[in-house]
């Protein structure tokens, strides 16, 4: 039977808590080349949004591709997206690997 291709989903996280509340692993030049969500903390904005899951891979943050970004740079892009007052939300493009 055909294997469905993983589909990317756009998830909008409202900044309705003091913390984003995710832990990520991975980045360019590691075994996990794109950041993967490994923890979602209760009470954080990510948890409140209800659409992010452990195991999802983050492809883009506010339209910025994380492909080729090393771990620290990917983490910085996400942290800055949460910190900026220009937007009350962060858009994550994620997919769930098969």
């Amino acid at each position: 039977s055909p294997v469905p291709a993983p589909t990317a989903t756009l998830v909008r996280v409202l900044k309705n808590s003091n913390t984003l509340g995710i832990a990520i692993e991975g980045g360019a030049n590691t075994r996990q080349p794109l950041p993967r969500i490994v923890t979602i903390q209760k009470g954080g904005s990510a948890h409140n949004c209800g659409q992010l899951r452990v195991g999802q891979i983050i492809l883009e943050v506010n339209g910025i591709s994380l492909k080729g970004q090393e771990h620290k740079d990917a983490a910085r892009i996400i942290a800055e997206a949460f910190k900026t007052k220009e937007k009350d939300h962060i858009d994550f493009l994620v997919f769930e690997p098969g």
Partner: peptide, 15 residues
């Protein structure tokens, strides 16, 4: 035969 992993594991960052 076991595949050799050449890339290192990643650190984890809490955001």
């Amino acid at each position: 035969r076991e595949k050799r992993l050449t890339l290192p594991p990643s650190e984890i960052t809490l955001l």
